[in-house]
């Protein structure tokens, strides 16, 4: 069995879950730090800040999803399938959209959500709008997820 194909696939899955996860953790942390500052003044807004903090968390989930798709595809749970180096490379490349866009968009979304914390500090009734601004950023993570999944579908083992 050609181990290189498997190794490349593993690299793809690891990057998807890893980079997107890093992005989400940084994004969530950015919002959390700002939110904690607001809560010292107004503890009653905890629920609202929690919603905003959760927003940049989805990229990590998209990355994890793609990682699992790869794991299922190559049979990493159960019996490994034969993966040629070419197929492995294709799988690795297919993982890149969600990995890279996940990494950067989660951080950017965290910054947008942190700004929204500032918004609800002054005007708590505008939470809806405060959610929409960061949700715009997520569009590109969604598109990257679609691209990754489409590309993965294109690799037949």
């Amino acid at each position: 069995m050609d181990i290189l194909g498997i190794v490349l696939s593993f690299a793809g899955a690891a990057l998807a879950a890893g980079l997107a996860g890093i992005g989400s953790s940084i994004g969530v942390s950015i919002v959390g730090q700002v939110a904690a500052g607001l809560i010292t003044e107004e503890p009653g807004k905890f629920g609202q800040t929690l919603i905003l903090q959760a927003l940049p968390g989805t990229q990590g989930i998209y990355g994890l999803l793609v990682a699992f798709l790869v794991i299922f595809k190559i049979g990493a749970i159960g019996t490994l399938k034969a993966v040629t180096p070419g197929q492995g490379m294709a799988i690795l490349l297919a993982c890149l959209p969600v990995a890279l866009v996940g990494l950067f968009s989660a951080i950017a979304q965290g910054q947008a959500a942190a700004a929204s914390i500032g918004l609800i500090a002054r005007r708590p009734e505008e939470l809806g709008k405060g959610i929409i601004y960061p949700a715009f950023v997520e569009t590109y993570a969604v598109l990257a997820l679609i691209a990754s999944i489409l590309l993965l579908q294109g690799v037949t083992l």
Partner: peptide, 12 residues
């Protein structure tokens, strides 16, 4: 995004 969200739920 409807597709992506549905996939994420089902996949996880």
């Amino acid at each position: 995004r409807l597709l992506a969200l549905g996939l994420a739920t089902g996949g996880i």
